[in-house]
Design a protein around this nucleic acid. Structure first.
Length: 422
DNA sequence: TCTGGGGTCCTAGGACCC
DNA sequence: TCTGGGGTCCTAGGACCC
């Protein structure tokens, strides 16, 4: 039988902030999304006060004042760096690891012994070495490992680890009964509603439903989920070395944007960022999609996107920008108040042995390669944004707000944590 | 008389995840 | 007044082929 562990950091962003600011321990904390728009992470204390995930910040301002909730703008440089460290430590425990998100990773434990013991060791080591709390769920399928992880988080008696294999059939059934069907991995809001109409409201009821019939009624994805709930693995470990299939860079603006010129600056910057990621993956893009939108909450909301295909695949920022701006101009409508724009690189291919088009000169290609290397190296060494494309604009007054940001303790020389001698 | 029967590839859109 | 950003996978339907 296969065995998987899901290791998940508890309240990851909030926990990262606490590592560098211990006075935040035991205090309610919320972390805000880019632009300080809504809540993307909460400490347990904030959850207990009723702050919901994803709630717009302006809706909880009185709650924040009333309970002295600490408000922090998200600091992705810090979280990304801490994440890399955590994943490295966790990865030492198993022959195969799949980093599933910034704060979660699956381990392949098939054939290993004392799985719960391994879970405890992981927990202890991450706490000791990095100061971050994690929980571990262990089961013969990823879907069950997810549920076990959630249970390990909510019952302190379990000390952060739950091994599904150690439960009796009756306990397994009770565990599944304790979860609403929407809590199951792969069952979102739409499916939850549809399942409810069939009288399926818990993870247990879903497990007991007929996979074939459900496959016809819904899709093969549903069938897989049911099979996984029955303890038969059908969602394998993914190869994490595979390059991404698309790269998206988008942001809401810090203020209303009407001007085409400002949109061009934004799109230029997003394209630069996406191109950096593209080169980091060692990929080339064949197409670019650009979208703009007004606030979707307006009555006459406008949202449009355009895709442009390149004459040949490329990772050259200047080249990509040219097409991005072309796409933008085709969808720009004057007089609207834009709130967000985004750029997606599509149809990505590995940057090896690419056939150059007939009229594409070798010399130009080498030159652009050196230029892009210089750009990436400078930005890596001196911090993002040290060197940028002129079209991004200097002021960037449309950029996001981040009023409550903490320093980039681990990734920027200017902002290193200071240790005070006693 | 009664509209072939497969196949493949591509795309848009839906649903999900964190 | 204020509502995130970055991904994946699946399906249905159209275009095209023999």
């Amino acid at each position: 039988m296969e065995q998987f562990a899901l290791v998940d950091c508890n309240n990851f962003y909030a926990s990262c902030e606490r590592v560098f600011n211990p006075s935040l321990r035991e205090k309610p904390i919320v972390i805000l999304s880019n632009n300080d728009g809504c809540v993307v992470a909460r400490s347990n204390e904030a959850k207990a006060l009723g702050v919901k995930m994803g709630v717009p910040f302006f809706k909880i301002t009185s709650l924040v004042e009333q309970h002295k909730i600490h408000v922090i703008s998200s600091n992705y440089a810090l979280y990304g760096d801490m994440s890399a460290r955590v994943m490295k430590v966790i990865g030492e425990f198993a022959p195969a690891q799949e980093v599933y998100s910034i704060d979660e990773s699956f381990l392949h434990l098939t054939g290993m012994r004392d799985l719960a013991g391994i879970g405890s060791q992981i927990r202890t080591r991450v706490k000791d070495w990095l100061g971050l709390p994690v929980c571990v769920g262990i089961a013969p399928t990823k879907t069950l490992a997810k549920l076990c992880n959630a249970t390990a988080k909510s019952y302190s008696k379990l000390e952060g680890v739950l091994d599904y294999n150690s439960l009796s059939d009756e306990r397994k059934a009770r565990l599944l009964q304790s979860f609403e069907v929407g809590a199951v991995w792969g069952i979102g809001r739409r499916l939850t509603d549809k399942l409810k109409m069939l009288g399926i409201t818990t993870a247990y009821a879903l497990r007991e439903s007929d996979p074939e019939e459900m496959s016809k009624r819904f899709s093969v994805v549903m069938k897989r989920t049911i099979t996984e709930l029955r303890g038969i693995s059908c969602i394998d470990m993914e190869n994490i070395d595979e390059a991404r299939k698309q790269i998206l860079s988008s942001r809401s603006f810090g203020r209303a944007v009407v001007d085409l010129h400002e949109l061009e600056e934004a799109v230029t910057m997003y394209t630069s960022r996406a191109a950096e990621k593209l080169r980091g993956d060692g990929s080339l893009a064949n197409e670019i999609n650009v979208y703009v939108r007004t606030s979707p909450y307006l009555q006459d909301a406008y949202a449009e996107s355009a895709t442009v295909k390149f004459p040949h695949p490329s990772d050259d920022t200047m080249f990509l920008i040219k097409y991005a701006v072309e796409a933008l101009r085709s969808i720009y409508k004057p007089g609207l108040v834009y709130q967000k724009a985004g750029v997606t690189l599509l149809n990505l291919v590995p940057n090896e042995g690419q056939q150059l088009s007939l009229f594409h000169s070798q010399a130009n290609d080498a030159k652009s390669k050196r230029m892009m290397q210089a750009l990436d190296q400078t930005n890596q060494k001196y911090g993002r944004g040290s060197l940028f494309i002129a079209g991004e604009g200097i002021n960037k007054s449309w950029q996001i707000r981040a009023e409550y940001k903490t320093p980039a303790y681990t990734t920027s020389w200017d902002e290193l944590a200071i240790v005070h001698a006693r």
